[in-house]
């Protein structure tokens, strides 16, 4: 699988009302949605979650196919969770017995329940990254976490680290590609051999890559200093985040949704 196939954490350019929401609102609403998935007790209540998520997906105008690609890298994790639940839940009516493993009705129920929860969780969180530019997410995080700076949480520094990481990932990928090619031209073999040989073959790649990373870090630190960087104090921002009507609606809808999910625990019907 090529790196570019991973949609988890990738941005899908668009102009929908979901794309335009304030990143802080998107982070908070996504967080609320993720909590709601753990509040839910029954399959029928999951319908609420699916309805909520489905509406947001429809509004975002991102093709469902594209979102579902986000499952690819974690499908193994989901199956593993389901299998564990299937095999290790031992309460309820026994349906089959294979040596030490028993499969029960409760087990099947739990497996499906957990599987669905994970799928909804991944769809929800990838929808946030698909509709928000990484740099906006970083800014939103910084703003949301800034009250915690008083109790010593380095909100600005964390956001700066993320910004720089985002900036240099493509640079380091290019560098990796170049070094691999250069060493291949000198007869290095990154593909064949035992695990031990493969690990050894990585040295000609990793040493230059680290040297490059340190060189970049040194250069960048100096460039940032030259541009008057001195931490978060006294710093202003060009992009001012302002909450609009859309954001108010989004928050209202999410609050109503959470209320309904909590209510669903009280109502045996749902």
């Amino acid at each position: 699988m090529a790196v570019r196939d991973i949609t988890l954490g990738q941005y899908f350019p668009g102009e929908s009302c979901i794309h335009r929401l304030d990143p802080r609102v998107k982070i908070v609403c996504t967080f609320v949605y993720l909590i709601s998935l753990f509040v839910v007790k029954s399959f029928s209540a999951f319908l609420l979650c699916i309805l909520f998520l489905g509406t947001v997906i429809a509004l975002s105008k991102i093709p469902f196919k594209f979102i579902s690609k986000g499952l690819k890298p974690v499908i193994f994790l989901i199956i593993l969770t389901m299998v564990i639940n299937l095999f290790f839940v031992s309460t309820g009516d026994v349906l089959a017995k294979l040596g030490p493993i028993t499969i029960t009705k409760d087990g099947i129920y739990r497996a499906l329940f957990m599987g669905l929860r994970l799928v909804l969780l991944i769809f929800g969180s990838s929808l946030m990254t698909l509709t928000t530019k990484p740099i906006e997410l970083t800014d939103g995080m910084e703003k949301l976490l800034s009250p915690l700076a008083k109790i010593g949480l380095p909100a600005h520094e964390l956001a700066m680290m993320m910004t720089i990481a985002l900036r240099f990932i493509p640079t380091l990928l290019d560098e990796t590609d170049k070094i691999m090619k250069a060493q291949t031209a000198r007869g290095a073999d990154f593909e064949n051999g035992s695990i031990k040989e493969k690990a050894k073959a990585l040295i000609p790649l990793l040493v230059p890559l680290f040297v490059s990373a340190f060189r970049i870090a040194g250069d960048l630190a100096m460039a940032m200093e030259a541009r008057c960087y001195h931490g978060g104090s006294g710093r202003t921002r060009m992009h001012q985040m302002k909450l609009g009507k859309g954001d108010a609606v989004a928050i209202a809808v999410t609050v109503i949704y959470l209320a309904l999910v909590i209510l669903s625990r009280q109502l045996p019907l749902l």
Binding site: K133, P134, I135, T163, R167, A223, T236, R237, H239
Partner: peptide, 17 residues
């Protein structure tokens, strides 16, 4: 190695900020 942000205009804003 001297550009900080992954968006051009945000990078130019870095110094003034």
């Amino acid at each position: 190695n001297q550009l900080v942000s992954s968006v051009v205009e945000d990078d130019v804003a870095f110094g003034p900020e």
